[in-house]
């Protein structure tokens, strides 16, 4: 994103900048070429989500937050393709992992859950998208709803794998404890602050109210992002979640130019 669009032939009023510049130089080769990746593992994360690990013949390190396109082709030539965020860290050389929620009637997610197994080949292209991406250079607040945690977990993993010291705050919202992705990894390491929230049911003794993400719960995280202007905020989740979280963040004073949003339709 340029800071302003180019001036025309006369003195034109500037266009307000939308956001900080894109964070990833798009990989043209990776984004153009389809390649056949090999499934090396399919593992269950929650009752509704599996992670599929792929080995890529032509591997371009992604920037945490980027996604790939996955294409399936039936015997008669019918194809279906979807975008999936990369869950794994960029330094996982030669490999990427997607975590896929089973969608009701989903032809691609259903295949990944019920059919895919090690040794299968799946066509992918990527990494894609240069905006919802964090190279690990600035403090971040990550706000995840459900499977919106997937690209944000790539950021958490990137920070850990590189032993980065830049502050990271994570607010992860799930319906119930059994729906929480990557639960074993959601204990904060030094320099990290985590808040895990449940909207339907929480374990006994849980310190936060059960229900929708509340302004009070988000407040300390938002305050940190307001106080330090280097902070960037990444929000990922359903449309309803993203709209709600965006409203809470802006109401708490976080400038919209420092908030990047990815919505799952």
């Amino acid at each position: 994103m340029t800071d302003s669009i180019p001036a025309g032939p006369v003195n034109l009023p500037p266009i307000p900048a939308f956001a900080a510049p894109g964070r990833a130089a798009p990989s043209l080769r990776g984004s153009v070429d389809w390649q056949s990746a090999t499934v090396v593992e399919v593992r269950r994360e929650t009752p509704n989500a599996v992670t599929v690990r792929l080995a890529l013949p032509v591997w371009h390190a992604h920037v945490a937050g980027q996604h790939y396109m996955l294409r399936l082709t039936a015997a008669d030539g019918y194809t279906a393709q979807r975008h999936y965020s990369v869950a794994s860290a960029p330094d996982d050389e030669g490999h990427i992992e997607f975590t896929v929620d089973r969608m009701p009637g989903g032809e691609v997610s259903g295949f990944v859950h019920d059919v895919a197994r090690p040794g299968d080949t799946l066509e992918v292209r990527g990494p894609l998208g240069g905006f919802f991406a964090w190279p690990g250079d600035r403090p971040v607040l990550l706000v995840a709803g459900g499977s919106g945690l997937v690209p944000l977990m790539a950021m958490v993993r990137h920070r850990r794998r590189r032993a980065l010291t830049v502050p990271l705050r994570l607010v992860a919202c799930a319906r119930t404890p059994q729906d929480l992705l990557y639960a074993a990894e959601l204990a904060p390491l030094p320099g990290e602050e985590h808040t895990v929230l449940y909207s339907r049911a929480a374990p006994p003794g849980y310190p936060h109210p059960v229900g929708r993400l509340a302004a009070d719960t988000l407040a300390p995280h938002a305050a940190a992002a307001v106080a330090d202007e280097r902070y960037e905020v990444f929000v990922c989740g359903s449309t309803g979640f993203a709209e709600h979280a965006g409203r809470l963040l802006t109401a708490a004073g976080v400038p919209t130019t420092r908030i990047r949003v990815e919505r799952f339709g």
């Binding site: 294409r71 399936l72 030539g77």
Partner: peptide
């Protein structure tokens, strides 16, 4: 050109698309 994905049956046949 795309290559066939083992075991994938789409929501439609190619002809029904």
């Amino acid at each position: 050109m795309s290559s066939t994905t083992r075991g994938f049956v789409g929501r439609h046949t190619a002809a029904e698309r």
